[in-house]
């Protein structure tokens, strides 16, 4: 649910990076943080365990520029991917404008990907959202590794709707900005079609 402020002429949108544990959600935000100039981004907040697993969320605010005289801000959040943090995941989805699903391309994580999409759908429904009506893009991450599922198979398992999808390597940054740009575009297109 974006927030339009006519007084400060700003629009804020919330993007949530979702996906199974260790798929690379935090790495996506870290790469974006490192590659955007300090005027564009705010502080990155990571509420993590001592072993750098996300505990509650990561948060990165970006002020990319202006459209039609309005400052466009995106608030990027990641959820904790570990299964037992489900209550926190649900909370982070509140008020979401668009979801990036980060899939782990490794063969042994395929089941975890599919479970995580199911979990995403359920948690969205609890807020009254339907994933099919929401701006949504997928990133097939860790394409640099050896033991990975083919792109076709990943598409078949995770992208039946034919939404925008990207191959990525969040540690080197491959696909990271393409993914962000795509979800931003999907969200702005919803705004264009009118206030919901």
């Amino acid at each position: 649910m974006s927030f339009i402020n006519y007084s400060s002429r700003e629009i804020n949108c919330k993007i949530v990076y979702y996906g199974p544990g260790l798929c690379g959600k935090t790495s996506n935000l870290q790469f974006i943080y490192n590659k955007t100039n300090p005027q564009t981004r705010g502080k990155m907040i990571s509420l993590a365990t001592e072993t750098e697993r996300t505990l509650f969320f990561d948060f990165l605010p970006l002020a990319l520029g202006e459209i039609r005289g309005f400052k466009v801000r995106f608030h990027l959040y990641t959820v904790p991917g570990q299964v037992f943090y489900d209550a926190s995941r649900k909370l982070i989805l509140k008020g979401v404008d668009g979801v990036v699903f980060v899939a782990d391309s490794q063969v042994e994580r395929m089941e975890a990907n599919i479970e995580s999409v199911e979990n995403l759908k359920e948690n969205l429904l609890e807020h009254g959202y339907n994933l099919d009506d929401l701006p949504y893009v997928i990133q097939y991450n860790k394409r640099d590794l050896e033991n990975i599922v083919s792109l076709d198979e990943m598409r078949e398992a995770l992208n039946e709707r034919g939404i925008p999808d990207f191959e990525g390597c969040a540690t080197s940054g491959k696909g990271v900005f393409e993914t962000l740009k795509s979800i931003a575009k999907e969200i702005l297109m919803v705004l264009k079609s009118g206030i919901k």
Partner: peptide, 15 residues
């Protein structure tokens, strides 16, 4: 909406 007239170029410019 103030964004009714948004174009692809507007979005590209953000990035």
């Amino acid at each position: 909406s103030p964004f009714a007239e948004i174009t692809d170029d507007d979005i590209d410019n953000l990035f």
